[in-house]
C-alpha cells in the first residue's frame, strides 16, 4: 500500500520547519526518520496533507554540555547507539537505542521521533523518564523546555503542540555510582517490547536512588513508583520484594501478544531482573 497524496516540504532549519507548521496548521505533520509515520500512512491510519521533513534541518548531532549531553532530535538511533560520548557518559541510553527494531530501522529512525511519537511501547520513553531528561521544544514563540515527566500526555500524544518541533533531548551525565539495565520481553526477534523494564540505580551497597521506567504498561510510559519508594535507603536485599510491586497502580493494555495480567506479571519479573543486573 502507498500513502494518500500529500504535499512535501523539506525544511532547511528548525525555523523553516516551524514556519511550515504554522502555515499548514493541523493538516501538517513533521517527518523525521519516517519509521513510525510512513508505516501508519501506508496503512492509512495517518493521512496528513503536508509533510514537513526535518531530516536535513540541521537537527542531528551530539554535544557534551558539561553536566549533561545535548542530543539533536534528528539524531538516528544508530548514531545514539554507537556514539562514544553517549557511551561514556550515559551508556544506558546507547544500550536502549541499540535494542530498537533492527539495523535498517536504526539507520533512519530518530531519537526525537521515538519520543514525539508518544507510543508507550517504544523503548526510549522509559529511559528518558528514568534519566529525568529534558526535551527542548521550539515553536513560533521560541524555545521552551519540558521535563520528561510532563512530556507524555496520552497514547500518541505528547506536550509538543501542532505548530511545535522537538529540537533537542537533554540527558544527565551519569557518574560511576550509577548502574543500569534494560530488560525487554519480545515475542519474536525485531518485535516491539511486550513489556520493558529500565532500572537505573545509584548505590554503594545502600541504594540512594532507584528509578524504574516501564515500557508498554499503560497508555503512557510510566515509572514504577511503588518499587522505587520501596528501595530508597535500603540494601540491595530489598530488590525482590520491591520489584513485586512494579505493576502496582498500572493499567496495561491487552492485545494479541499479551493480556493485562500477563503484562503485570512481566513487569514484576523484568523489574527484578533489571534491578539485580543494575546493582550486580
Amino acid at each position: 500500500m502507498i500513502p494518500a497524496s500529500f504535499d512535501y516540504v523539506r525544511a532547511g532549519s528548525a525555523e523553516e520547519a516551524v514556519a511550515a507548521l504554522v502555515e499548514h496548521g493541523d493538516e501538517a505533520k513533521v517527518l523525521a526518520g519516517g519509521h513510525s509515520l510512513i508505516p501508519m500512512m501506508r496503512l492509512r491510519l495517518a493521512v496528513p496533507e503536508v509533510l514537513v521533513d526535518i531530516t536535513e534541518a540541521g537537527l542531528a548531532g551530539i554535544t557534551d554540555a558539561g553536566d549533561h549531553l545535548v542530543i539533536g532530535a534528528a539524531t538516528t538511533h544508530h548514531d545514539v547507539a554507537t556514539d562514544k560520548v553517549i557511551e561514556t557518559h550515559c551508556g544506558v541510553l546507547a544500550h536502549v537505542a541499540a535494542t530498537i527494531g533492527d539495523p535498517q530501522v536504526r539507520h533512519r529512525g530518530t531519537i526525537g521521533g521515538g519520543l514525539a511519537h508518544g507510543d508507550s511501547a517504544g523503548d526510549l520513553p522509559a529511559v528518558l523518564l528514568a534519566l529525568e531528561g529534558t526535551m527542548v521544544v521550539q515553536g513560533p514563540g521560541g524555545r521552551r523546555t519540558v521535563p520528561a515527566s510532563e512530556f507524555f500526555v496520552d497514547y500518541l500524544e505528547t506536550a509538543v503542540a501542532a505548530d511545535e518541533l522537538l529540537v533537542e533531548v537533554h540527558v544527565p551525565k551519569l557518574d560511576d555510582s550509577w548502574g543500569w539495565d534494560y530488560q525487554k520481553f519480545t515475542r519474536v526477534a525485531q518485535a516491539w517490547a511486550t513489556v520493558g523494564a529500565l532500572a537505573l540505580v545509584s548505590s554503594n551497597g545502600t541504594i540512594s536512588d532507584a528509578r524504574v521506567g516501564l515500557t508498554h504498561m499503560g497508555s503512557v510510559p510510566i515509572r514504577a513508583s511503588a518499587t522505587e519508594a520501596a528501595l530508597a535507603g535500603q540494601s540491595t536485599d530489598a530488590i525482590a520484594d520491591a520489584a513485586a510491586r512494579a505493576a502496582d497502580d498500572t493499567d496495561p493494555p491487552s492485545d494479541l501478544n499479551a493480556d493485562a495480567d500477563f503484562r503485570r506479571h512481566l513487569a514484576t519479573v523484568l523489574s527484578r531482573r533489571a534491578l539485580e543486573a543494575a546493582v550486580g
Binding site: Y8, R10, L31, G34, H35, I38, P39, R42, L51, D53, T55, H78, P103, Q104, V105, H107, R108
Partner: peptide, 20 residues
C-alpha cells in the same frame, strides 16, 4: 533493503523525494 549514502535502509519506508 538498499544502501542510502552507504547505510542499509528499507526502501519501502523512505520516500523517493527524501533520496533527492
Amino acid at each position: 533493503t538498499v544502501h542510502l549514502d552507504g547505510r542499509s535502509v528499507k526502501s519501502c519506508t523512505v520516500l523517493a523525494v527524501q533520496a533527492d
